[in-house]
């Protein structure tokens, strides 16, 4: 109290600034230490040749990047796998999510039960989901192949076959995460006023026309959000790969996020792994920006 008497009282603005920074200081400090710092550090690491076992590191300039982009053909396999994974997962996930959402956005008897079912894997640990599906997808004796045998299909050895492993991982991952996108779409669908649709119907539009000309454009903002979340989610997939295929067979499911872990913590190449992390970072930034720009352009038209 005395202090305020001597010094001129703080203006509201200054006080607000103080309180504001005080309020944001925990997250800001933590964010700087555990996120921004490491992000800068990983750039530094990527310029070194660093062995995790011997703990020796030497400056290597751009060697790690040269290794990844030029000398090590494995990198291109990994990058291709990551893109194949995203290209397979994103459309499948979004199409299924939208289908389910359209089916479950209007009330009917049992609708809550179905929503609950399709959303259940979202709250289930990814580790548990991947483990149970690994069990279901065992070669001959796996439940999936036994079911297929009932209808006369001789199922492949899903997780051991280079052509099928990627497919199996993508599909099981879609089952795991599609519920979230479904919910987002349902929320968006329910916020569309019924009048629009009814008006269109009165004009004689078919169900498909209503969807294509009215519903789908109105869903565009949601679609963008879902797309960004799903694309990034597909690039960071780790636990499914770690538990179901370990990147195999024949490196067929070796994706970037898993490759980073493997290089750093299994083969001890810290510098090379850091360079891969930087590449993953750039890839995500690039893809996110591209999508937002594309959508904005589309929105303007």
């Amino acid at each position: 109290m005395k202090d305020t008497a001597i010094r001129p009282p703080l203006t509201l603005r200054t006080r607000d600034a103080l309180v504001g920074w005080l309020f944001v200081s925990p997250i800001t400090i933590g964010f700087l230490i555990f996120f921004v710092g490491p992000l800068v550090a990983v750039l530094g690491y990527s310029l070194t040749e660093w062995n995790l076992l011997t703990q020796q590191s030497t400056f290597a300039g751009m060697d790690n990047y040269a290794d990844a982009l030029g000398r090590n053909p494995e990198f291109w396999t990994v990058l291709r796998n990551s893109l194949v994974f995203a290209a397979g997962l994103v459309p499948l996930n979004m199409a299924l999510a939208l289908t389910l959402a359209v089916a479950l956005s209007r009330p009917f008897k049992g609708v809550v039960i179905f929503r609950t079912i399709f959303f259940a894997p979202v709250v289930t640990a990814a580790v548990a989901w991947a483990i149970v599906w690994t069990f279901l997808l065992q070669g001959e004796s796996g439940a999936v192949n036994q079911m297929l045998a009932l209808i006369g299909i001789d199922g492949p050895n899903w997780l051991r076959h280079p052509d099928w492993a990627m497919f199996a991982v993508i599909v099981t991952r879609v089952f795991k995460t599609v519920g979230l996108n479904m919910i987002l779409y349902i929320a968006a669908l329910q916020s569309i006023p019924r009048d629009y649709e009814e008006a269109a119907r009165l004009e004689g539009a078919s169900g498909w026309q209503v969807f294509r000309l009215i519903t789908w454009p109105l869903l565009a903002p949601t679609t963008l959000v879902i797309m960004v979340i799903t694309v990034v989610g597909s690039l960071k997939v780790f636990d499914h790969i770690y538990l179901m295929t370990e990147g195999g067979p024949e490196n067929g499911t070796l994706v970037l996020a898993f490759y980073i872990y493997e290089q750093a913590f299994e083969f001890f190449n810290v510098g090379y792994a850091a360079a891969l992390a930087v590449i993953l970072f750039l890839l995500i930034v690039l893809l996110t920006i591209t999508q937002v720009i594309l959508k904005q352009r589309g929105g303007e038209r």
């Binding site: 076959h161 299994e266 001890f268």
Partner: peptide, 17 residues
């Protein structure tokens, strides 16, 4: 050995068909 093993693993996978 760790590097050799990691190099062999994806190649050996091709055997099991």
């Amino acid at each position: 050995y760790p590097q050799i093993e990691s190099a062999m693993r994806p190649k050996f996978d091709a055997l099991w068909k």
